[in-house]
């Protein structure tokens, strides 16, 4: 080992390099550098970049989703409020309509009852007139028959009979009015 100055049993100087080792160290490092640069560095950097992109993409997507969900929620709330408003409006309308219908029905019923009362009155009046007329005829006959029997005088003569009755009725009317 002549490179070590270790003649005569002295300790070798460890600071003096073994030249083949020095050369080999440089070569090994150079090769490792080339291999790392070619095979390791691009892979790791690509992985890091992909991961960063994936995380950022995920965050962006989540933000978009959140915004969409917020918009959807606002829209639904708006729809719900509209629906409530609509329902309230319809209820109010129905109440108004109901009130109108009730009022109309009451009016109709009143008119009907008035009409019925009116008709009844008219009928009663007509029947009364009829009764008066028929009574007038019958009263005459009865009275003359009765009177004939009482006075014993025949009143069968049409003309006379009629005259007597008329006179009698006129007396009645002038005495106390009809009815």
């Amino acid at each position: 080992m002549n490179y070590l100055l270790a003649a005569e049993g002295e300790e070798p100087n460890p600071l003096i390099p073994h030249i083949p080792e020095l050369v080999l160290g440089v070569v090994v490092f150079a090769l490792l550098y080339v291999l790392v640069k070619k095979f390791v560095y691009p892979n790791f950097e690509a992985t890091f970049a992909e991961r960063t992109a994936a995380i950022e993409g995920g965050l962006a997507a989540a933000e978009t989703k959140q915004a969409e969900a917020d918009a959807k929620l606002a829209e639904l709330e708006q729809q719900l409020a509209d629906a409530r408003h609509e329902a309230a409006r319809i209820r109010e309308e129905a109440r108004e309509q109901g009130a109108t219908i009730v009022a109309e029905m009451r009016e109709q019923a009143q008119a009907e009852s008035a009409r019925i009362v009116e008709a009844g009155k008219a009928q009663i009046e007509a029947e009364r007139q009829q009764a008066v007329t028929s009574l007038r005829a019958e009263v005459g006959t009865l009275a003359t028959g009765l009177a004939g029997r009482i006075v014993g005088e025949s009143l069968e003569d049409e003309a006379r009979q009629s005259r007597v009755v008329e006179r009698f009725l006129a007396d009645l009317e002038s005495a106390g009015g009809v009815n």
Partner: peptide
């Protein structure tokens, strides 16, 4: 040793980086 452990260092880095899994 320097050759062997350089190879091991490269193998470690290479196989760790090769899959590129997220």
């Amino acid at each position: 040793q320097i050759v062997l452990f350089a190879v091991l260092a490269f193998a470690f880095l290479y196989f760790a980086s090769r899959k590129r899994a997220l």
